[in-house]
Amino acid sequence: MKTHITTTVNGEPEEFLCETEQTLLDILRDELNLTGSKEGCSSGDCGACSIILNGRLVCACLVLAVEAEGQKIETIEGMADGEELHPLQKNFLKDAALQCGICTPGFLIAAKALLEKNLNPTEKEVRYWLAGNLCRCTGYDKIIRSVLNTAEEMRRK
């Protein structure tokens, strides 16, 4: 039997029906057509499906869709403000902090969660915070620089 879930996704009220075993990642992707969150491992090890659930960074592959009842979900699709990219997105673009792009939404969401907690992180703090996100293309350095650059920019504003 399907369960009816009412939730908020990227600031908009959203409801869906799901089976109890369905992950939030699958519902986001397959039912709500929010395919920006990616499946990299389905075991919470790679961070490609990172979303923010009630202000907390989580892997959507480890959350059951039924657990989303009454929760606030933020995904990559809600990160830009309309046409205006989030400062992290702008800097990733400028700093070439992505290659194949499949881990990128997860990195952006994770970095956003970090900067919402701490706008003045050290390089080490950024590296450890993002250690839950795997990337096989970039070697991480450009991502780390980009997050640090963004933090600095946002502090100045």
Binding site: R29, N33, L34, T35, G36, S37, K38, E39, T75, I76, E77, M79, A80, L85, Q89, F92, L93, K94, A96, L98, G101, I102, T104, P105, L108
Partner: peptide, 21 residues
């Protein structure tokens, strides 16, 4: 030159096989 295919990928608009409707 700035990579010219990235805005799509940065906003969740990438289309990998599993994203094809």
């Amino acid at each position: 030159v700035q990579r010219n295919n990235d805005e799509r990928l940065l906003t969740g608009g990438g289309r990998y096989v599993d994203d094809i409707p």
